[in-house]
């Protein structure tokens, strides 16, 4: 078999990966050991000062908050998308198509547009609070953003369409006789999704949750637009340090630590999920 073409294609892919990912990554690691210089971004040196700052406490708190909020939003995204898709595939073909087109449209919207949409919807003057006030449900309607909840809503909206569209063909094409078999074996219909459908899709859902976790870790616009400064994630902090404060070495060090923590968490999750499967 002629392996020339696959090898060339492989080399091209490796080349692109090296130029656009590995080299900048290596450069970032190197810069993380430099000293900060407000006039020139950094000064060449070798110091652990930036890493010491990370472990000083403030950034550790931000990291924990980031990991927690991102993990929770990833779980919410996958849970919502899974249950929504289970319902949508039961609709007629016409309505299924409607939902798929709607989800594809949502995917086409940029992060900024989604953020603005939620800003308006959660605002006191034109959004949900005003509607709740008009309906008499909320006596003293106030803007719901910026807040932690608003930021979470934004993050979930970003991931929902992607996860839904990944799950749709798998859920639509599943062998429904497995669920029917569970019913004939004594499972009440309302427990079938919990006892049969969910365990069958568990590996897929774990993989999607991890993917969403990584994706949402890097989201910048939603925390800035919809969250309070106390809700900001490490992505915002890194950007703030590197660009706002012109402290590129500290920004790089924060990014390196986040990369290591994320990688370690992903490896741990994969290890646990593989062990469960065995």
């Amino acid at each position: 078999m002629n392996l020339f073409v696959p090898r060339i294609l492989g080399l091209c892919a490796f080349g692109i990966l090296s130029v656009f990912f590995l080299l900048p990554l290596a450069y970032m690691v190197v810069v993380s050991f430099y000293k900060a210089d407000p006039m020139a971004f950094y000064q060449v040196a070798f110091t652990f000062e930036n890493y010491q700052k990370y472990f000083s406490g403030f950034y550790l708190n931000v990291t924990l908050r980031t990991l927690w909020s991102t993990a929770v939003s990833a779980v919410i995204v996958v849970s919502l998308a899974f249950t929504a898709m289970l319902s949508i595939v039961e609709l007629s073909r016409k309505w299924q198509l409607f939902w798929v087109i709607l989800l594809l449209s949502m995917m086409c919207l940029s992060e900024v547009i989604v953020g603005f949409a939620w800003l308006i919807l959660l605002s006191e003057s034109a959004g949900i609070p005003r509607l709740l006030g008009a309906l008499g449900i909320w006596d003293d309607p106030r803007s719901l953003s910026p807040s932690f909840g608003a930021m979470m809503i934004g993050l979930v909206t970003l991931g929902f369409s992607v996860v839904s569209l990944v799950l749709y063909p798998q859920i639509a094409g599943r062998d429904k006789s497995v669920e029917e078999a569970a019913r004939t074996l004594g499972t009440p219909p309302y427990l079938v999704p919990l006892y049969v459908t969910l365990p069958i899709f568990m590996q897929t859902l774990i993989a999607l949750t991890l993917t969403m976790f990584v994706y949402l870790l890097g989201v910048f616009v939603m925390p800035v637009m919809l969250g309070r400064p106390s809700d900001w994630t490490m992505t915002v902090m890194i950007s703030d340090k590197a660009l706002g404060d012109a402290n590129l070495p500290l920004g790089a060090a924060l990014a390196v630590v986040m990369l290591i923590i994320t990688g370690a968490l992903l490896l741990l999750s994969l290890y646990v999920s593989r062990k469960r499967r065995v």
Binding site: S177, V178, E180, A181, T184, P199
Partner: peptide
């Protein structure tokens, strides 16, 4: 009522 399905419908997990 015990039923064997055409696809067998075994629980893969």
């Amino acid at each position: 009522i015990g039923m064997v399905f055409q696809s067998l419908a075994l629980f893969p997990h």
